[in-house]
Design a protein around this nucleic acid. Structure first.
Lengths: 236, 236
DNA sequence: CGCATCTTTGAGACTGCTCAATACAGGTGG
DNA sequence: CCACCTGTATTGAGCAGTCTCAAAGATGCG
């Protein structure tokens, strides 16, 4: 049950920081996430890298560090004894991982794509939090956003139809131009939305037939009618 | 994967504070929730009361206060345009409400039973947090627990069968003696577990026929075989 | 005691799942 | 560069668990 630990490579780079996933999923969000926090952690942590499908940490491991993703996509998941899996969320550049710094991590984190990230030890983090009220508030606010996202997902999983789930998912990942990148597999999408891969695939095909999305390759598509899609996301 | 052991729970001198829901749902929890925080808020807030079904705050309202429940049960829920409802959680004496102090509340809070609670303004809370590192850590830890509970619920809603959901729910609410109090209606339970009232009712009847629970009235039952129930909670 | 509400039980329908076959994409070697 | 091969995605047919609709049985309140 211990995680494979990635090589820690002391290395700096200043890649662009795309909008974090949370910002979009959390429409009622408080202040826009400032980059200072991320900069701070980036500058005080160590860099790590993950291969595709490599595990960053495992459910049950000691929660010893907070991570900032510099590039790539990470999935966090919980698994039942018989293998059924629920993906808690996908995280991308600018997002924080392992925020629930209890004694242990409550979920496993794995790389969907190759990932670069920075690691900040728990002690170091707590020191920083004690010293900087502003950082503290920001982290609290990010945790609140995470909670709000989780609750939205509970609504989706508990009460939405397959089509609504897919539409919600696509809208949540769409850029302002309607482009959607899906670096994760259909299986990952299914496990995130509480469906099977077949249902995901079928539903996407339906949306395509209905002229709501245009698909260009397996991992990228375009929303051609976001308004209608938006209606479909919340009402059958 | 067997039984849950709510071992702890020492006797408290004054008001009997039932174990907060979080403690039980969050098996991997950090330090047991100390009462000092609750005492602190209790002593600095104003008391409020709610009638049955009365609303404390509504999704979208300004998140101006944190509440501690003194007695009674509260449900927090999110609702879709067409009325479908998802209950995010049930909260009881000792639990905190409105922790996600963003600008607005992300869900509505309503009284399941008559409720007494204490209210602490946001400004007041932030002052207290700045002054007391320990309080701060505790609140952060509680928020983390809330997040963990939400993620467990995502697993339940996304991947568990009706029977598994009911079993998980019952185990989560059982005292050490196997007694379960259900102050909420079947509709509330259904909306919490992502089911319909009929399915809830049928499943409870099945468990009773199978000799796993004994029902004494609508709102209270007893787990007669927690181990078997526990198996059922995670595997069909 | 009577009424309104909630719960339980039943029968049938439907969404999404399972199992199975085909199609596609990406990488490998000739 | 193309044929091959493996893993993933799509499509199809049938099934099952849960939902819907409906009625009867409890419960609680005035």
């Amino acid at each position: 049950m211990s995680s494979i630990h990635p090589a820690i490579v002391a290395q700096h780079s200043s890649a662009p920081l795309p909008q974090p996933w949370l910002e979009r999923a959390w429409s009622a969000g408080s202040a826009p996430r400032s980059e200072d926090l991320i900069e701070l952690i980036r500058s005080s942590g160590q860099t790590a890298r993950l291969e595709r499908d490599e595990m960053l940490f495992c459910e049950g491991d000691d929660g010893e560090a907070l991570y900032v993703i510099l590039s790539g996509t990470v999935r966090c998941c919980k698994v039942l004894a018989d293998g059924r899996r629920q993906i808690i969320g996908f995280y991308q550049a600018g997002d924080l991982l392992g925020l629930s710094l209890g004694d242990v991590y409550f979920y496993s984190a794995e790389a969907v794509t190759p990932v670069r990230l920075r690691r900040l030890g728990r002690v170091q983090l707590e020191t920083m939090m004690d010293e900087r009220p502003q950082l503290r508030r920001r982290l609290f606010s990010i945790a609140a956003g995470e909670l709000a996202a989780a609750q939205n997902q509970m609504l989706l999983l508990g009460r939405k139809t397959a089509r609504e789930r897919i539409c919600t998912f696509l809208l949540g990942r769409a850029g302002s131009d309607g482009a959607v990148e899906l670096p994760m597999s259909r299986t990952d999408i299914a496990d995130y939305l509480g469906l099977t891969i077949e249902t995901v695939s079928r539903t996407l095909s339906q949306l395509r037939s209905a002229g709501l999305v245009r698909m260009s390759g397996l991992s990228s598509l375009e929303l051609t009618d976001p308004d209608r899609l938006s209606d479909m996301a919340e009402a059958a």
